[in-house]
C-alpha cells in the first residue's frame, strides 16, 4: 500500500511556488537596520525585526502611540513613553538582597559561557546574577521565575526613539527582544528606577531572562543561546 502522507510531503516539496517577494521591505526601515552588521546579524535577525522597526516607527506618531503603550516579553512589561522619568545618574544598583547561588528561590538556568557570577541577588521571584562589582557592573543577568506577564515583576520604559529588534535565539522557540541605543529605564520590584544598558530579553522553559551590559546583539544572542 502506498504511503499517501509521504507522497503528499514529497509533493509539497515539489510545488512550484514563486520566489518569495520582499514584501516586508514595504514596511520601511528602522533605525536598527542602519546599524545592522550584514555578516552575522542577518542570520539572527528575522524578518520579525521589521515588525519591531515598524513598532518604533508607529510609536513616533502621536496619533498611534496607543498601540505601544504596553508590550510584553515574558514577565517583563515594556512601555513606550514620550519622555523618560528623571533618574538619578548615580543611583546605586539595587536588585535585591545578596544571597548565595545555592539559595536561589527556583532552579536557575545557567550559562556555560559565563560561569559563576561575582554576586547573586534575589527579590521575590527575581534573581539577578552580577558579573563585575556593584560599582563597575560588566554584565547583569536577571531571571524571573515566570514567563507570564505580571506587573509586579519588572518594567522597562523606553523612549520612542529606542531601537527594538526581535531576534532569533538558536534553540529557543520564541524570539527575544533586543533593546539597544537610546537610554532606557528599568524598574525592578522594590528598586528605584535606573538607567539600563543594552538589553536582551527572552523566555525559555517557563522563565523570563534578560542580560544587560555594554555588549552587542551578537554577543548577547551567543550568551542567551548558552543558557540551559
Amino acid at each position: 500500500m502506498r504511503d499517501l502522507e509521504r507522497e503528499l510531503r514529497e509533493l509539497g516539496a515539489e510545488l512550484v511556488v514563486p520566489a518569495t517577494p520582499d514584501f516586508a521591505a514595504r514596511f520601511g526601515s528602522g533605525p536598527h537596520q542602519e546599524r545592522a552588521d550584514p555578516r552575522s546579524r542577518r542570520r539572527l535577525v528575522l524578518v520579525l525585526a521589521v515588525i519591531a522597526a515598524v513598532i518604533v516607527g508607529v510609536a513616533a506618531s502621536p496619533a498611534r502611540t496607543g498601540i505601544l503603550r504596553f508590550f510584553g516579553i515574558g514577565a517583563e512589561r515594556i512601555e513606550l513613553v514620550d519622555r523618560l522619568p528623571a533618574v538619578q545618574p548615580e543611583t546605586p544598583l539595587f536588585v535585591g538582597s545578596e544571597i548565595d547561588l545555592a539559595d536561589a528561590p527556583f532552579p536557575l538556568q545557567r550559562s556555560d559561557v559565563l560561569g559563576d557570577p561575582d554576586h547573586v541577588y534575589a527579590s521575590g521571584d527575581v534573581v539577578t546574577l552580577l558579573y563585575g562589582s556593584p560599582k563597575r557592573v560588566r554584565l547583569l543577568v536577571t531571571e524571573i521565575g515566570s514567563d507570564e506577564l505580571r506587573p509586579e515583576f519588572a518594567k522597562k520604559l523606553l523612549a520612542v526613539s529606542t531601537a527594538l529588534t526581535l531576534v532569533r535565539i538558536p534553540g529557543v522557540v520564541d524570539p527575544g527582544l533586543w533593546v539597544e541605543g537610546e537610554p532606557h529605564v528599568v524598574v525592578l520590584p522594590g528598586a528605584p528606577p535606573r538607567l539600563a544598558s543594552n538589553t536582551l530579553v527572552w523566555t525559555n522553559d517557563g522563565r523570563t531572562l534578560r542580560i544587560e551590559g555594554e555588549l552587542g546583539v551578537d554577543d548577547a544572542v551567543r550568551i542567551a543561546e548558552s543558557f540551559r
Partner: peptide, 11 residues
C-alpha cells in the same frame, strides 16, 4: 501581526 503584537501571548 505587527499591530496585534501586544496581544501575542509570550511563551
Amino acid at each position: 501581526a505587527q499591530r496585534a503584537l501586544a496581544r501575542f501571548r509570550p511563551g
